[in-house]
């Protein structure tokens, strides 16, 4: 049981004690709301002999066909106290119910997730799994002047007796603009198709479905994109919306692939976006040094690799965003 699950366990015990669920349905619902799948404990006590009618003996079974034993065995009960039957049984039964809940064997539900997506691939993911959410959020973020009032700039403006035309604000990294995600489907990217799908789902989760525009392309977005299975001309996003292209820039394509995009096409895309106050980030499953030097200068080329961290991505973005 992980440390985080112990937080849930504490909550479960606390609300179990406070609300004292009286039946299995309530117990199951209550446990589910805290994050557990609760199963009623198997009663292993010997049935009381006197009131029950003579049961029919079950047919003999082979030892191997015996039902599997539960994971935890109760200790053997001590011999019954002859005076015990005279005592009120209510408190004892409640205590027994609490003890019967074998907390350690309770199955933990999946963490509640809206879409319950599975990111599992057969191959290990290209980003470190624990870092991937932060990296994707950083990739989709841009620095906008929406933070606190920039007192230093404000004071310096006023000290210089210049009019304050606009309250200066400190920049803040935000995903509020959304993101346009361009996914390269050329043969060179074939080994990364499942990674692309997982990455796109992660963008969806981190940025939000409505704020994410997902387009597919072959070789270069400027040659057209695929939207809903139909080819269409590429349209840049709204001004200021960052663009992330997941592509190998033609580096991984076979030699017979003659249609690979020239660096000039990517530079044209960068210029097109820059005219609309947008920036291009390239997620490259190759070393960044293999990309065209001109492209390296004017875009952030992020290596799709385990060595990449959110700090590195932010540093690259700061370089191109200013």
């Amino acid at each position: 049981m992980s440390r985080n699950q112990q937080i849930w366990l504490g909550e479960l015990i606390r609300c179990w004690k406070a609300l004292a669920p009286a039946d299995d349905n309530t117990r199951k619902t209550l446990a589910g709301l805290v994050g557990f799948a609760w199963q009623p404990p198997v009663d292993q006590r010997e049935p009381e002999a006197t009131p029950a009618p003579e049961p029919e003996l079950p047919p003999p079974v082979a030892p191997s066909a015996a039902p599997p034993q539960p994971m935890t065995q109760k200790p053997k009960e001590p011999p019954p106290n002859p005076q015990a039957s005279e005592l009120p049984r209510v408190a004892i039964e409640e205590e027994a119910q609490l003890q019967a809940a074998e907390w350690d064997s309770v199955e933990v539900l999946n963490p509640p997730q809206p879409h319950n997506r599975q990111y599992n691939n057969l191959l290990p993911p290209l980003f470190r799994p624990l870092w991937s959410r932060t990296i994707v959020t950083t990739l989709a973020s841009r620095r906008l002047p929406i933070g606190f009032v920039d007192a230093e700039r404000l004071v310096s403006t006023m000290a210089a007796a210049r009019p304050v035309e606009r309250i200066p604000r400190q920049p803040r990294w935000t995903t509020m603009k959304g993101v346009q995600l361009l996914l390269d489907k050329t043969p060179g990217m074939a080994p990364f198709l499942s990674d692309q799908a997982a990455l796109a789902a992660l963008f969806d989760d981190c940025v939000g479905g409505e704020a994410l525009e997902r387009l597919h392309f072959f070789d270069s977005p400027l040659r057209g994109v695929v939207i809903g299975g139909k080819k269409a001309a590429y349209r840049p996003p709204q001004p200021g919306v960052p663009v992330v292209a997941v592509t190998d820039l033609g580096l991984g394509a076979p030699e017979s692939h003659f249609n690979r995009a020239a660096p000039g096409e990517w530079l044209s895309l960068v210029q097109l976006l820059a005219a609309r106050d947008s920036t291009l980030t390239i997620l490259l499953p190759w070393p960044a040094a293999a990309a065209d030097p001109g492209l390296q200068r004017c875009t952030a080329i992020v290596e799709w690799d385990r060595s990449t961290s959110a700090t590195l991505v932010r540093r690259l973005l700061e370089r191109i965003c200013g």
Binding site: E11, V34, P114, H115, C206, G208
Partner: peptide, 27 residues
């Protein structure tokens, strides 16, 4: 039984996922 004096109600339209660490601290 003891009960809290404070109830924080948070809503989400699930347009994007909330961090797992945050989810684990919520009912």
């Amino acid at each position: 039984q003891e009960m809290s004096r404070l109830l924080v109600v948070i809503t989400t339209n699930e347009e994007r996922e909330l961090p797992p660490a945050f989810l684990r601290r919520c009912i």
